Computed example of a mutant assay.
Amino acid sequence: MSDVGYSAPTQTQDAQMGDFFALLKPRVMSLVVFTALVGLLAAPVTVNPVVAFASILFVAVGAGASGALNMWWDADIDGVMRRTARRPIPSGRVEPGEALGLGLGLSFLSVMMLGLAANLLAAALLAFTIFFYAVVYSMWLKRATPQNIVIGGAAGAFPPVIGWAIATGGVSVEAWLMFALIFMWTPPHFWALALFMKSDYDDAGVPMLTVTHGRRTTRTHILVYTVLLAVLALATGFTAIGGPAYLATALVLNALFVKGAVDIWRRDEAQAEADGYVVEKKFFRLSLWYLFVHFSVILVEAAMRAFALGAW
């Protein structure tokens, strides 16, 4: 691990079960589980409920493994940043070696069990996702390039592809469309956060776009990626996983999202700092709902198709 601004806690507290659970990043895990489940249910194949439950459970375990490995590697910078300083390792409640062991153990368990419960392709995709997040993103991209969030976003975009592979044993255009939605959503979501948390990344030495190119450039990038995301989201409405309910929802939500990005782009730093980055925080909060709503409507469309065919 890098030693940027990090000093080990002087006093180690006894770890509780909640501390080890926190290592798994449960909020991130919940998004992984949801998007993987949508990928599974949106696939044109009916999956045995027991197989589906077990498979999604092992995907969740794999997501937790990624989180533990990320927290192990990033303990140095987590200790510097205000929003992460109370995480289990920098706060001294969990030893780094314990987090590493947990992450490696859960990685092996989740991949092996998903292969047994579903198929080898789904297991291979889960293994690659864990590797990409823990090694490619956490150990390399995050500290090496301002494109860390752009490229690293692929790790969070794989769950619906894994879900689709669980159901079908393969992947298709529809699975990659769901991947693309998450992939294109990730940069504006995190760059909006970086706009009002810039000092954290400065202090930790993380080359976030706000640090390397400034907030003005970041605002422009948010707008560009949001417009591209809106085009992709609306185009998805005309594909096999879309439909009238999805398209209507996407029109409203993406209009709001683009408007928010335009509002961010039009602001100068003096104005944003004076009002406490209220517009940026509003856009960030909307981004938290963006994926949930889109994937929920994809699930609704799948249910409507299955009902029409008598499959549900």
Score class of each variant (00 low, 15 high):
G153K: 07
F190K: 12
G156T: 07
Y137N: 10
L106T: 10
L126W: 04
A180M: 13
G153D: 06
R143K: 15
V111Y: 01
W164S: 00
F131M: 05
A154R: 08
P146C: 12
G169F: 12
A123V: 09
P187F: 07
A124V: 09
A157S: 14
V150M: 06
A167D: 01
M113N: 11
T168D: 03
A192P: 09
A154D: 01
L114S: 04
A154T: 06
A192W: 10
L116T: 09
F190R: 11
M139V: 04
G169M: 01
G152R: 11
N119V: 10
V111G: 00
F183S: 01
T186R: 15
A157P: 04
L141K: 15
M113Q: 13
F190Y: 14
G152D: 05
G156D: 07
P159K: 03
Y137T: 08
V161R: 06
L141E: 08
A180L: 15
I149V: 15
W191A: 05
T186K: 13
F190I: 13
G105P: 13
S138W: 09
N119W: 13
G153W: 07
P160R: 04
A144H: 14
G152P: 13
V173K: 04
A155T: 00
S138G: 08
G163P: 04
H189F: 04
A117H: 08
T129D: 01
A118H: 12
A144N: 15
L121V: 00
G170I: 01
P188I: 02
L109W: 07
G163D: 04
F158R: 06
F196S: 02
N148R: 10
A194E: 03
M184D: 02
M113K: 09
L106K: 13
G163W: 10
L181I: 14
I182F: 10
G152H: 14
I151E: 01
V135A: 09
G115N: 07
A194L: 08
G115T: 00
W176D: 00
L109D: 08
K142A: 03
L195I: 14
T145A: 05
I149A: 07
T186I: 12
G156A: 08
W185S: 09
F108R: 10
M178A: 09
G105H: 12
A155L: 08
F108S: 14
N119F: 11
A167R: 14
L120S: 13
P159S: 04
L181W: 01
P159Q: 05
G170Q: 13
L121W: 06
A180H: 01
L193C: 05
A180N: 05
Y133M: 03
N119A: 12
L109C: 05
F108W: 15
A118G: 10
V111P: 12
G170V: 03
A194V: 03
P146E: 00
